[in-house]
Design a protein around this nucleic acid. Structure first.
Length: 269
DNA sequence: AACCTCACCTGCGGGC
DNA sequence: TGCCCGCAGGTGAGGT
């Protein structure tokens, strides 16, 4: 479900709501949600820890604790919800609840793909994630260097989190359309002008989606349970059979590296 | 290195 | 109405 803009929105909200709170109780309703350590140790070790800060890296949510880090990856359908401590209705697919002093942080996840990681240092989970596309230091040259020598499709590379951290299927398709590049193009065939266009398009798409608090197709919600508003601004994703908003031809859906890709066969070369 | 399929899960919408 | 199929925003493993 959530890609970089959705995770960024969630982290932004967490910073406003749960910083300086302390974990006073842990309820694990589905043990598979805890990737590391065991669900048992997760519950006991988390007790009493203060939440210092919230950050995003790629699609990971990082809660900086005292001590250690709690990472959350929402995968397809995960949600982090902040609710008051009174008996608000529980989400249907609640997997983990962290009780804080005045609030409760709920991890809900219909498809059970999402995971939480309690570790001494976030880097042991983040491993070899690629650069942050919105980092001011992420320039065209580095992007170019990361695409060099790859004969895979540009779409496959954009989805590879080791190449670039945070893009998913929606924003990869949107950025490729904005840059006028077909998703099945081999990465190594992009010329410098195209790489520059794509670099700019990725950052522009992500920034605008963050501004609109993310895209809700079906499951994404922010920490208050609200939908994102970026859906109505999408140009290609989910629009196969409809007219390209730039040139009017019919948008297509194809399968690339096992995923649906939406694109315009005329204005994406 | 790169590609494929499968697996992890639940739910929804379309076709019959 | 109900069943079966395909599909879903992510990723990792294991095979070729």
């Amino acid at each position: 479900m959530p890609e970089l803009p959705e995770v960024e929105t969630i982290v932004h909200d967490l910073r406003r709501t749960i910083i300086d709170e302390t974990v006073e109780g842990v309820d694990v309703f589905w043990e598979g949600a805890i990737a590391v350590p065991s669900a048992q140790r997760f519950s006991t070790e988390l007790l009493g820890r203060r939440i210092r800060d919230a950050e995003r890296r790629g699609k990971f949510i990082i809660l900086r604790l005292e001590p250690g880090d709690l990472l959350v990856h929402l995968r397809m359908t995960g949600q982090l919800l902040v609710t008051p401590n009174d008996h608000a209705p529980q989400p249907r697919h609640l997997r983990v609840a962290l009780r804080l002093r005045e609030k409760t942080l709920l991890f809900s996840d219909m498809r059970k793909f999402g995971r939480m990681y309690l570790v001494p240092d976030a880097n042991q989970v983040l491993g070899n994630l690629g650069p942050e596309p919105l980092d001011p230091g992420f320039g065209v040259d580095e992007f170019q260097a990361r695409l060099n020598g790859h004969r895979r499709s540009i779409k496959a590379l954009l989805l590879d989190q080791r190449v670039l951290a945070g893009l998913g299927n929606i924003y990869a398709d949107e950025a490729l359309h904005a840059a006028g590049i077909a998703p099945q193009r081999q990465a190594c065939t992009l010329d410098q002008r195209e790489v520059t266009m794509l670099h700019g398009a990725i950052r522009d798409q992500l920034q605008r989606a963050i501004h609109n608090r993310g895209t809700t197709f079906s499951d994404y919600r922010d920490t208050a349970g609200n939908k994102g508003e970026h859906h109505e601004y999408l140009q290609v994703y989910g629009r196969a059979g409809s007219a390209c908003l730039r040139c009017g031809s019919t948008l297509l859906r194809v399968r690339i590296c096992g995923r649906s890709s939406f694109y315009c066969p005329i204005c994406q070369k």
